[in-house]
Design a binder for these strands. Structure first.
Ligand SMILES: [Zn+2]
Ligand SMILES: [Zn+2]
Ligand SMILES: [Zn+2]
Ligand SMILES: [Zn+2]
Lengths: 164, 164
DNA sequence: TGCGCAACTGTTATGTAATAACATAATTCA
DNA sequence: TGAATTATGTTATTACATAACAGTTGCGCA
């Protein structure tokens, strides 16, 4: 990220080590099985790369790192991203054109499922935090216009605790 | 927009006629003057096109319609869009890669200035409504993590009153 | 068992969105 | 006027995402 700052960016709050990643992959496989969906190789590889990252990851970074040698073809990865998002395993961050693993398990809804979430996005270190969203006030605001909300994108840009 | 619906999409709540557009352009010129900024030809033309549209407009639609004959060059339009956004005259809709005129004047803050806003985006007819945002609850949520919010993107997708 | 369908992947090509880099022109102000 | 600043013109490139179709895999059922 922009390094117009003197502090380091090693405060990887959500970084998972290899064991952590494998644990999350196992959960994901279980979820897919429970839903009658298939956790295929490209899907798992895509999720693995995103889990290994401590910040939202660009689709083309996944593409570039997909194979030990050489890149994947874009449709391979974009299809996997679409699937993972539908399963509620990852979220797309619209304002960054990037994808991040769902952190819902840190808030209790332990069985991932598609959901709207709010994100705190640090403009200095690039890390993101998923926070639970109070849809109520937005729904009420919308209802006042007769609008029926299906899905909410809420992304707050600013500075995380470590970067201020 | 997707026309998997039988109703028409002519409920143009925010559509401005030629006089309305000119009035808004005049306000914009006044605002720029007051701020010591210059409302140049490409900036005004870009704003005119966005005001004339009754829904968020893609950058490349502005580019295509910029000249009566032939298109503008992308940097011309992207620079104008950046300026207009900084002036608070338009908003970027992240989830659509599109731009819409600020409707703040319909809510009273009559002197446009850069601000976070919330949008209700109809997935059927494509129209958008800008609603005032209660930043409070988001700020509090962020503060609990020590996060300092600078700017908020809030986009609710769903169906407007006329499209349900 | 192997046929037939549905879901998924591979591959090529293309479409869409945005910016880098540098040259030229207009505006401001001393 | 002339230098500094701001804005535009222009060419090229980079970044992001999907269309279209061929081939493969998994799976239920005759
Ligand atoms: Zn989540
Ligand atoms: Zn940070
Ligand atoms: Zn506004
Ligand atoms: Zn609608």
């Amino acid at each position: 990220m922009s390094t117009a700052c003197d502090h380091d960016h090693d405060h990887h709050d959500h970084h998972l080590d290899a064991h952590g990643v494998e644990a999350r992959l196992a959960e994901a496989r279980k979820l897919c099985e429970a839903q009658g969906e298939r956790m295929t190789a490209p899907r798992q590889r895509t999720l693995e790369l995103i889990l290994s990252q401590n910040a939202p990851m660009k689709a083309y970074d996944v593409i570039d790192r997909f194979h030990p040698d050489g890149a994947a073809k874009p449709p391979t990865v974009y299809r996997a991203l679409g699937f993972l998002e539908q399963m509620g395993l990852i979220h797309r961050i619209e304002s960054l054109n990037a994808f991040v693993a769902c952190q819902g398990h840190e808030h209790d809804h332990d069985h991932p499922e598609p959901h709207s979430a709010a994100f705190l996005l640090c403009e200095c270190c690039g890390q993101s935090e998923e926070v639970m969203l109070d849809l109520g006030s937005i729904d009420r605001k919308a209802a006042a216009s007769g609008f029926k909300v299906r899905r909410i994108t809420l992304e707050a840009k600013g500075l995380c605790k470590a970067c201020q």
